[in-house]
Design a protein around this nucleic acid. Structure first.
Length: 463
RNA sequence: UCCCCCAUAGCUCAGCUGGUUAGAGCGACUGACUGUUAAUCAGUAGGUCCCUGGUUCGAGUCCAGGUGGGGGAGCCA
């Protein structure tokens, strides 16, 4: 079906030409003005019908949600809200939408309501903007790594690896659970990292960008059972290189959307500002969405060690006034309240925490010379918390074997992983970035279920 | 998994100390108007008060259990 996409018609470039538009009706005002959206951009195109020349039975079908095709001349708009409009010569309803039943009406809906209508919520401005941005962000990520000489590696989704310790796993079986198709128990992957390391030890710079599955019973606005993760892994990088990479990557992708998706971002910024009017002052963001993104692309990330963070927290006002619910002392993991204070109160910008106590981090992280800490890094951002977690990997075979023993990981389960330390081992580092958390940060959406088309969470797998 | 809150019209909500025929705004529909921008104005329709059980002369309202949703915590990305 030959058509002109609306994104090409909202500027005056094609004024005077005959155009064909396909899309879905947002509103129909005065029996005359048809606002149509085709998903190519945030903006609707205004179609102007000649009331007398339009059949009444046809007009009755032009309701919110109906799919239509129209042809006519693109002209400069006589009204104020838009640069162009189409003087319709012919309009056809491709698919009606019974207004008694179509749930997405031209009024404010709550996110909770739309989440239950996930198959139709793309029809709203908010969700079409979110999913255009989701696309742009994933493109920018591939663009960033490709430009930097990385190779994308497809790591397995079904895996027999059970030693990673990243979380509870989903078992995979055939419809006959007794039949062991792979000859051993297998799971859905919780991370592509270990396999990515294997690739990095030959290809140099690799990354994975794939689905990840966690069977944790997590009921929060920041967790999903199925989510997408970006995991670069780079040979010969140390922790400091790793932080540089994470910072450059975040800056690149946010710059990309600020440059290419500004109308969607402005719409979402506005939406957020409106939504926050309902909130008490202390729950609102200190700055608007666009300013928050700019502060990341323009400012340097604060870097400090876990030990320094503990010192800062112990000197903080909430600590002295005993406002923290959880203890702050060297050796315990930082809680959300502590991370929030550092990121949102103390620095108000992304904060990279490094060199955590070995006991609270994964087995593969490189032991520091002090013997107590590991070369780990977490990137915390305002409003989200942990966006990135990574480390320099333990490349020394003997140390890694000690760590396996400490973490009760049988060596024969990850013999292939240990082999990379046996044959031509080298320093290397990498991180994992939760893609949905990135989309949350970039869009200002506050529930992770609203930045993935069809969320999977405990007790929730509709669609 | 734990703590707190919520469930009444298509949507967002009100409904007092248990008491007559269940309320509003928005949306939808009908009509008027016709260069509108979530148009405007007038009118109309629309209810398994989440489910099960209990207390009571009487339950939307009180109690118990369940289901669903939200916020926070833990786990993490």
């Amino acid at each position: 079906m030959k058509r002109n996409v609306i994104s090409s018609l909202i500027s005056t470039d094609l004024v005077g030409q005959s155009v064909t538009v396909c899309g879905w009706v947002r509103t129909f005002r005065n029996d005359q003005f048809l606002a149509v959206n085709d998903g190519s951009c945030l903006q609707n195109l205004q179609l102007v019908l000649d009331r007398d020349a339009t059949d009444e039975s046809l007009r009755k079908l032009l309701t919110t949600g109906a799919a239509i095709r129209a042809t006519g001349q693109l002209v400069e708009s006589q009204g104020g809200g838009q640069a162009t409009e189409v003087k319709v010569e012919e309009v056809e309803v491709l698919g009606a939408a019974d207004p008694d039943e179509f749930p997405i009406q031209m009024k404010r809906h709550t996110m909770e309501f739309l989440r239950e209508k996930a198959h139709l919520r793309f029809r709203t401005s908010t969700f079409s903007a979110v999913f255009r941005l989701r696309h742009a962000l994933q493109f920018a990520i591939h663009d960033f790594f490709n430009s930097d000489g990385f190779y994308m590696l497809h790591t397995p989704i079904i895996t027999g690896s059970d030693a990673e310790g990243a979380g509870e796993m989903f078992k995979v079986s055939t419809s006959d659970p007794d039949q062991e198709f792979f000859g051993k128990p297998v799971n859905l992957t919780v991370s592509g990292q270990l396999e990515a390391e294997l690739g990095a030890m030959a290809l140099g710079k690799v990354y994975t960008f794939g689905p990840t599955f966690r069977a944790e019973n997590s009921n929060t606005s920041r967790h999903l059972a199925e989510f997408w993760m970006i995991e670069p892994e780079v040979a010969f990088n140390d922790l400091s290189d790793n932080i540089d990479l994470a910072e450059a990557c975040l800056k690149h992708v946010l710059r990309y959307v600020l440059e290419h998706n500004l109308p969607d971002l402005e719409f979402l910024a506005n939406r957020e500002a409106e939504a926050e009017k309902q909130l008490p002052a202390d729950k609102r963001n200190a700055t608007g969405l666009i300013e928050r993104l700019r502060s990341v692309t323009e400012g340097a990330f604060v870097r400090l060690t876990y030990t320094e963070a503990i010192d800062l927290l112990r000197q903080s006002k909430p600590f002295k006034k005993k406002k923290f619910k959880y203890p702050v002392e060297w050796g315990v993991d930082l809680q959300s309240e502590h991370e929030r204070w550092l990121v949102e109160k103390k620095f108000n910008c992304p904060v990279v925490l490094t060199d955590y106590p070995a006991g609270i981090k994964a087995f593969y992280m490189r032991r520091n010379d002090d013997g107590k800490t590991v070369a780990a890094m977490d990137v915390l951002v305002p409003g989200i918390g942990e966006l990135i977690g990574g480390s320099q990997r333990e490349e020394r075979l003997e140390v890694l074997k000690e760590k396996c023993a400490e973490f009760n990981i049988p060596e024969d389960h990850i013999w292939w992983y240990l082999d990379t330390r046996k044959f031509g081992t080298a320093p290397h580092a990498g991180f994992g970035m939760g893609f949905e958390r990135l989309v949350m940060f970039a869009t200002g959406m506050t529930n992770i279920r609203d930045v993935i088309p069809f969320p999977r969470a405990p007790q929730s797998a509709e669609f």
